[in-house]
Design a protein around this nucleic acid. Structure first.
Length: 368
DNA sequence: AAATCCGACAACCGCATCGGA
DNA sequence: TTCCGATGCGGTTGTCGGATT
């Protein structure tokens, strides 16, 4: 749009038609482009006195030579006091990836679940980071292949970053390092995940789930969130996940799980997992598994998963959840992950190699 | 050192929706 | 019911600074 057009629009928004001369005047006076400090101060002081809203009136009365739209955008995206600045955390990125998979380009809706973040910021993140990865893979960012790749590689990576950040004193779990796909122990910042290689591999592997050395157990299921619980929790992720009225992980019989071999389910009842020993082996002594277990929200599908997957991985999920302090994801285990999204999707992914490793290390692996 | 490229993000635009007259 | 202004939303562009050539 030309500046003249913008000026005309601004004048129209101001409430009346204008003559050619008035249009010319508006054209000359209307400011565009980056905001100056003086303009910001003017806008902030006006809003401090009169409050938000009535943006066109604000634009006319504040002395700002801007359109009401421009004022609103500047305030909402930059000046508003509760705006969070800085890089998106791994947790926030996870939320974005999850919610975008669910809702698509509903930036404003997604932003509602990330307090302090604007739709514009999320949109930019998606375009600059996520779509870039898709471009490099030569796949559509909205394609199933890309979503699979994100879920299988990017998300676990972010989960690992979250856990590492929350339990920085603890050494990375051994199983996190023995899987080349999980970037275990990587200290690279989560803000700019370098996943192209992994996603490239994923793009090749995902369509061939069997026989590529991977076995997945994925079980998406819709779970409507409880509106009343949407405000619980102090973190954005916590706010996303109300406690469901279903049995939690702690109620499961740890001695009566099954191991998932990919080819067959093998009764793992003989392998008793000692949670304390598990914690110790991970350098997470003293962690209270209770809250972690509580955070391991469950539903019928998740229980199905637990009954058909690796006990050790499930334990790892719980432990990492405790280490991460979050109750959103439960957690990357060397390429395997359980994702319990209480806004809609439960997805469990188990990496066979990890299952074997865990089972072998921790005493329940007979037959895997 | 200059030119170019590229990522990040602020800002703009058109359109849709809402609400009041 | 219709009109119109205000507001919100998503797509796109512009700008800037750092990295690379």
């Amino acid at each position: 749009m030309s500046r003249r057009k913008a000026a005309a629009a601004a004048a129209a928004a101001g409430g009346g038609s204008m003559s050619a001369m008035e249009e010319e005047t508006a054209d000359q006076e209307l400011r565009r482009g980056p905001w100056t400090l003086e303009e910001d101060n003017l806008l902030m002081s006006y809003i401090a006195c009169h409050g938000e809203g009535r943006w066109n009136l604000l634009a006319r009365c504040s002395g700002l030579k801007r359109t009401g739209k421009s004022c609103r955008l500047r305030w909402l995206n930059y000046l508003k006091p509760d705006i969070r600045r800085g890089n998106l955390t791994a947790e926030e990125q996870l939320v974005i990836l999850e919610l975008h998979a669910k809702w698509g380009n509903r930036w404003s809706r997604i932003a509602q679940h990330l307090p302090g973040r604007t739709d514009n910021e999320i949109k930019n993140y998606w375009r600059t980071r996520v779509q870039k990865q898709a471009r490099q893979l030569k796949v559509d960012a909205n394609s199933a292949v890309f979503r699979d790749a994100v879920r299988s590689y990017w998300m676990p990576r972010l989960l690992h970053d979250m856990a590492a950040a929350a339990s920085s004193m603890a050494a990375p779990p051994p199983l996190m390092q023995q899987n080349g796909h999980c970037h275990g122990g990587s200290s690279s910042q989560s803000q700019s995940p370098v996943i192209s290689d992994q996603l490239q591999e994923t793009a090749n592997d995902v369509p061939v789930r069997a026989g590529g050395g991977y076995e997945y157990y994925c079980c998406p299921v819709a779970v409507e969130p409880s509106p009343s619980a949407s405000t619980s929790g102090s973190t954005p992720a916590a706010a996303l996940h109300p406690v469901p009225p279903v049995p939690c992980f702690s109620e499961l019989n740890w001695d009566d799980q099954y191991y998932y071999s990919g080819d067959a389910q093998i009764d793992g009842g003989a392998g008793t997992l000692d949670s304390a020993a598990l914690l110790g082996s991970l350098g997470l002594d003293g962690l209270d598994l209770g809250p972690a277990a509580e955070s391991f929200y469950s539903d019928a599908t998740l229980l199905d998963y637990l009954n058909s997957s690796c006990t050790a991985t499930a334990a790892m999920n719980t432990i990492m959840s405790a280490g991460g302090g979050g109750n959103y994801y439960n957690h990357c285990a060397g390429g395997g992950m359980v994702d319990v999204d209480h806004n809609g999707t439960t997805t469990a992914t188990c990496h066979l190699g990890t299952a074997r490793k865990l089972a072998g290390e921790w005493g329940g692996g007979a037959g895997i």
